[in-house]
Design a protein around this nucleic acid. Sequence first.
DNA 1: GGCCAGGACTCAA
DNA 2: TTGAGTCATGGC
Length: 266
Amino acid sequence: MYQVNDNKITRLIRLKSGPAMIEVSDYSDSLVVKVFKDCLSVSDDEELTSYVTQWFDLERDLSEFYRLLEKTPETRHFSQEYHGLRLMGIVDLFEVLCWCVIGQQINLTFAHKIKTRLVHSLGDCVNHDQNTYYCFPEPEKIISADSSMLAEMQLSKQKISYLKNISEAFVSGALDKQKLLNQSSEQQLLQMQTIKGIGQWTSNYAAMKCLRNMNCIAYGDTGLSAALHKYFSTEKKPNIVTIDEIFRPFEGWKSYFNFYLWKSLG
DNA sequence: GGCCAGGACTCAA
DNA sequence: TTGAGTCATGGC
């Protein structure tokens, strides 16, 4: 879906007016976004700025988070080691939820393979500079996709059912990013969990990566458990009470703390 | 060959 | 509310 070369990231995104190839690079202390599109209207321009801002979480001042990290001996070094690292987002709520389902209880290498098959098979694409770039498939594409074809991608029957549930929820409007953004963080999680296939882990992951809810914790996550065991000498699979205790000082920054703990696993 | 992986569901007690 | 069983298969 995207390429990273020479400190530049290139990808195809979907604007309301249609797909657009973009290239993001850094210049001094800012980001430069180059658009490969014949003409860009004013509304496209605003949408694009909003997209990149959400993607990289650009509008957040991380200094308070680093102050909190400094106060925590076990993970004090994070503030230097990962200084400036932002919680990379997945702007498309549908995509992040599908990605969570695909990745449930399988290793990431395998999960990436399945996602690639799905995107190559059902996603819109554009050829650019000798590469093919893909958008994540739209819900309608997954609804109309033959289940046996999805099974050939090595999605389990359960996951196919979950993906279709989620797709239906987007088409019907039961799930909608803008609507969720108007709700409280607790309501956001509960609303997502009404869809079969979306549990505690998935809803928290989506809320942190897409809705930019800053107090999410991926409870039950194996990577998070491993990091907490490593730095805080918890049980190998700490319970919710233990996790909450460790995260308590990071009120308002729990998602970031979770993200940095993941990062620390390499 | 066996355990584990960026879980979630159902069902029983 | 909690725990065991089930799904499902590649990676190591």
